[in-house]
Every structure is written in structure tokens, then in C-alpha cells.
């Protein structure tokens, strides 16, 4: 459900690029998905396979997902650590004054077109 809404947004964005650049057909979409972006890759792919049929540019395309690691930075001890393993609390000094550096991305990296 949640993934489908995002897929529709991706398709709309790629359709716009295709129309603007006078592209005939998109053969592949390469996306970067952060580990903690709340997108579940296989549900996302299923939603894409269903939704792509509605787009003339995308109906024969394939989707490649590159998963980006979740990395959090600690403002107190200035170290970075694995977000999935330790979440908000810094494993080095126990501080909660931390923020996510990477891992929240839902990004269209590039498309392959003919």
C-alpha cells in the first residue's frame, strides 16, 4: 500500500523525464533505497511490476534497486555507526544526540532508455 504510492510517484517522475527528453522507451530504472527508508524492496518491486503496465514508456522496463546502508552520526563523540544495529543510541558513548547520515533515501538514480 505504502510502497504502491511511492511507485506511482516514481512512474510519474520517470514519465515526465521521458516526455521532456523525447525518449521512446525506458528499459531500466535504477533506484537507490536506504535501509531505513521504510521501503520494503520486494513489496516495492511487486508494486512496480503491477503499476508499470499503465505507463507507455515503462511497460517493458525492469527495476534495479541498490540498497544503501543506514549510517548514523553521533554529535557527542563524533563517530558514525550502523543504524540498523544500534538505532538512535550511540554504541560508543550512549548519547542520544545522533542523526541519520545515510539510509533514508528513496532516489531515482538513473534510467536506461532507447
Amino acid at each position: 500500500m505504502h510502497e504502491l504510492g511511492i511507485v506511482m510517484q516514481v512512474i510519474e517522475q520517470v514519465d515526465n523525464v521521458a516526455a521532456e527528453s523525447k525518449i521512446e522507451k525506458v528499459t531500466k530504472i535504477i533506484m537507490e533505497i536506504g535501509e531505513v527508508s521504510s521501503v520494503i524492496p520486494n513489496i516495492f518491486t511487486d508494486a512496480f511490476e503491477w503499476a508499470k503496465k499503465k505507463s507507455n514508456y515503462l511497460k517493458d522496463s525492469e527495476l534495479e534497486l541498490i540498497i544503501l546502508k543506514g549510517i548514523t552520526y553521533c554529535r557527542d563523540c563524533k563517530k558514525t555507526y550502523d543504524t540498523v544495529e544500534y538505532a538512535k543510541k550511540c554504541p560508543y558513548c550512549g548519547s542520544l544526540d545522533t542523526y541519520l547520515v545515510t539510509g533514508n533515501e528513496i532516489k531515482i538514480k538513473s534510467i536506461e532508455v532507447v
Binding site: V10, Q13, V14, K107, S110, I111, V113
Partner: peptide, 9 residues
């Protein structure tokens, strides 16, 4: 050909 988009959703 490849078109770079680099756009967050």
C-alpha cells in the same frame, strides 16, 4: 543510453 536523474522521490 543512460539518463542520470539523481532525484529523490
Amino acid at each position: 543510453k543512460i539518463v542520470e536523474i539523481k532525484e529523490d522521490i
